[in-house]
């Protein structure tokens, strides 16, 4: 089982990238599980064709100890097992602790043993903002981290913080940085800026995803590009990234 955490600044396109990679991997014959780690609980919406699934934390709140695996894991496009950790309403509660509670529940219900996925993708909110958001890269969870960024200053700042966190956890034997995915925003010198960032982080660019209208068109259909426009160049780009991840060429 390969377990990968995908981090990046909020709004940079992590969920779109993750869902497309999940769809691409499933089309290549892999059993995939995608775990959204964001209180918004919208990581898997494209795989679920727009349907918002109940989050782990909502189900714990409602059903207490009676929560079953079927209450929190749903099958999306290509048989991808979709899970959303969920979290509190903005302004109250503790979102980081929420992720820990959701992960503990997945363990308790033996989700990984039950579904036996080839790949688990953790789609994690924005930045490593507290202990809870680092949970996906702790011991026993993701072995590799992929950072999604554009060439924009704030996206790179968030990416830099994630690199710092990974570096900090290195002495604990946790996840390593597998590479950078450039989700292009068509800013000046973007390729050069992101390449320089990757070099400074001691990493490399795994894939450059061009900015393309077709992504928005697929989202308007509540579909991933891989599902809605399987023969498009954008779909081929996601499939190439998926292939690199599975071949292990993502390792730096």
């Amino acid at each position: 089982m390969k377990k990968i955490a995908i981090y990046g600044k909020g709004g940079i396109g992590k969920s779109t990238t993750t869902a497309n990679v999940a769809a691409a991997l499933s089309s290549q014959g892999f059993k995939v599980m995608q775990v959204g780690c964001d209180p918004k609980a919208d990581s898997t919406q494209l795989l679920m064709h727009g349907k918002k699934i109940p989050s782990v934390l909502d189900q714990i709140k409602e059903k207490g100890e009676d929560v079953e695996l079927a209450d929190i894991a749903y099958t999306g496009f290509g048989g991808v097992v979709c899970v959303e950790s969920g979290g509190p309403t903005p302004g109250i509660g503790c979102a980081g602790r929420g992720i820990i509670a959701a992960f503990n529940k997945l363990e308790e219900l033996h989700a990984y043993e039950e579904f036996r996925p080839d790949v688990v993708l953790y789609d994690v909110l924005g930045d490593v903002v507290c202990g809870g958001f680092a949970m996906p890269i702790r011991d026993g969870y993701a072995e590799e981290v992929i950072i999604v960024t554009s060439g924009e200053r704030m996206a790179l700042f968030a990416a830099g913080n994630i690199v710092l966190a990974i570096d900090n956890f290195k002495k604990r034997g946790y996840a390593r940085l597998a590479g950078i995915v450039q989700n292009s925003r068509k800013i000046d010198n973007e390729d050069e800026i992101v390449r320089t960032f990757a070099e400074q982080a001691g990493s490399r660019i795994l894939q450059v995803i061009p900015r393309a209208q077709i992504v928005q068109e697929a989202e308007a259909l509540d579909r991933t590009v891989v599902e809605a426009f399987p023969d498009s160049p954008q779909s081929a780009c996601y499939k190439e990234l998926a292939k690199k991840i599975m071949e292990g060429s993502a390792n730096v």
Binding site: C94, G96, R97, I99, I100, C130, G131, G132, A134, M135, R138, D139, F169, R172, Y174
Partner: peptide, 9 residues
């Protein structure tokens, strides 16, 4: 526990 301290780490 509340602040998500990584005691194993």
């Amino acid at each position: 526990m509340i602040v998500g301290c990584d005691v194993a780490g």
